[in-house]
Design a protein around this nucleic acid. Sequence first.
DNA 1: TTACATACAGACACGCATGTATGTATGGTG
DNA 2: CACCATACATACATGCGTGTCTGTATGTAA
Lengths: 206, 206
Amino acid sequence: MTEELPVRRTQVERRALSRSALIEAAAIRLSAAGYAGLVLEQVARDAGYTRGAVYHQFAGKDELALAVVEWVAGLWDAEVGRCGKDQSEPDEALLAVARAHALFCRRPIAQVMLTLRIEFLGQDHPVGTAVADAVGDLETWCAELITQGRATGRIPDGPPAHSTASAFLAVLEAVGIHGGGQPPHDVELAERAARGVLGLPAVTGP
Amino acid sequence: MTEELPVRRTQVERRALSRSALIEAAAIRLSAAGYAGLVLEQVARDAGYTRGAVYHQFAGKDELALAVVEWVAGLWDAEVGRCGKDQSEPDEALLAVARAHALFCRRPIAQVMLTLRIEFLGQDHPVGTAVADAVGDLETWCAELITQGRATGRIPDGPPAHSTASAFLAVLEAVGIHGGGQPPHDVELAERAARGVLGLPAVTGP
DNA sequence: TTACATACAGACACGCATGTATGTATGGTG
DNA sequence: CACCATACATACATGCGTGTCTGTATGTAA
């Protein structure tokens, strides 16, 4: 059996390692229990530390949650947003985002943003505003795509672009999390919902 | 100015009055703060009582939340589900539900179900299971409508009926709450999303 | 009107989670 | 090797919310 030979690590390595471990553990707990139900003792345990480590790396519960939000937002951008930016046409970009988001939602941490957004909806909490800002940036991006697509006629007319973008993102989150979520169908349902909100015709074919 | 002349009320009247006041206050707080963030002191204050009243009417925090869930579910059924049952064709029923739900979501208490469902997702809490059960009943009802509609050809084929129903309801909740939600457009966006999930063609404007 | 039941307020005790302060081990530097 | 900084653990203090208990006022029935 493998003995626990303590590998010699540099300080920055230790710091980065424990920090990311804490963030990931917090993300999982956060997506399951929400911010109010988040217990730092459990987070530290999950990551293999104690609360001392948490308070050494983060100023408190707020900043830990903030770090989680930043981390997840970055992850989303790298895995989902990127898919949209690779497309040349705005409608294709939005649909690519929808499909990529469905895949993204198969991971347990995907709920984090939705959970926090709902928990802090209509409140004035730093974590809530951070999430709202992140989603807000996405909304404006999607709104721009919608405006472009409508200008070129690839996306039919409809409610104001920003409202449509807001609904578009909300729908993606919802389908990704509660929407049956079975691996074969989640992507199709996400695309269906996206097409519906955007007013695009349903896919016909195999 | 009107003097507070204490109206003579019977015991059952008092009980029912304070009970409903507490439930409504709890619903509002619950939809804003979630279960973990729900503070009974605030609920009692909002309703014009103290925590003594809460613990006299309900066994504890759990049962108060349970009563809220039951109340909201009944309200939804009366205001939204009814619209679906009035329709003769299954696709019309589902779209009617979508539109009625959008209107339902204009009220502050509409978030309750979604908030609690997410908060207790994947946990074993009586409140969570109550919400899950309520939504589960809706899902099976919607799934039956979808199956019927597909049998008669009014609804195109797609993912399994139950997965589709789950996504259908999730989408309605999402659009109703975050979806722009502006009074003129929320109904249209809800119908668009519903049509998309079901695979129905988009409405061609007037 | 006397006696009891119910509706509710106030006060107390407990648990639990956060935040802080102190101690210890490991990495870095002269 | 000596000295300091950093990473982390442990112990302590505090606040806040729940649950319970007791007291008081109002409705109810003999």
